[in-house]
């Protein structure tokens, strides 16, 4: 069947099977490989994208369900001139990544938190990122990056 959607502001369409996952459509169909397939069991959150403004795990949604939707991936998160957004820059400044595999999902998840809660507490950041797993950092620097991106002073997080 044919599906069409707007991805990062661009109208796209493609042929999919019923079982084609949104992440497969984005990566294999559109070449947007910034969205990662980590666990493929909806545990890890590396595949997090926004569908009509809501964060979802694109490995646990069929492409057919996104027909007609507005989709944003990590490739759509930079500023218009190609420079890193405040949130992305904060991940770099606070060393909020090591191998980087989980980072696209972390950024997409954190972005919706900051939309809903512009100045989250550390506890709110940790609660919101529960569905995003990082195996390198131990999370502290990710939490710092998100707090810093919200304009808050970050010196230490509670678990340190």
């Amino acid at each position: 069947m044919k599906v069409q959607m707007r991805v990062n502001g661009r109208q796209v369409s493609g042929e999919v099977e019923g079982r084609t996952l949104l992440v497969t459509f984005l990566r294999d169909g559109q070449g947007l490989t910034g969205t990662h397939t980590g666990c493929d069991t909806s545990q890890c959150g590396a595949c997090t994208v926004h569908v009509d403004g809501l964060q979802v795990k694109s490995c646990s949604m069929f492409a057919a369900e996104a027909d007609g939707a507005e989709v944003t991936t990590i490739e759509g998160m930079a500023n218009a001139d190609g420079s890193l957004s405040v949130l992305q820059q904060a991940f770099q400044d606070h060393h909020g990544l090591q191998c980087g595999f989980c980072t696209p999902g972390m950024v997409m998840a954190a972005a919706t938190l900051l939309e809903q809660t512009p100045e989250p507490t550390e506890a709110q950041v940790r609660h919101h990122l529960q569905g995003n797993i990082c195996r390198c950092t131990g999370y502290h620097n990710i939490i710092k990056a998100v707090m810093a991106a919200s304009g808050q002073q970050v010196t230490q997080v509670a678990a340190e």
Binding site: S42, G45, Q55, V56, S60, A109, H128, Q130, G131
Partner: peptide, 9 residues
């Protein structure tokens, strides 16, 4: 329930 992404679906 679950996490934010799960709650959105």
């Amino acid at each position: 329930i679950g996490d934010p992404a799960v709650r959105n679906r």
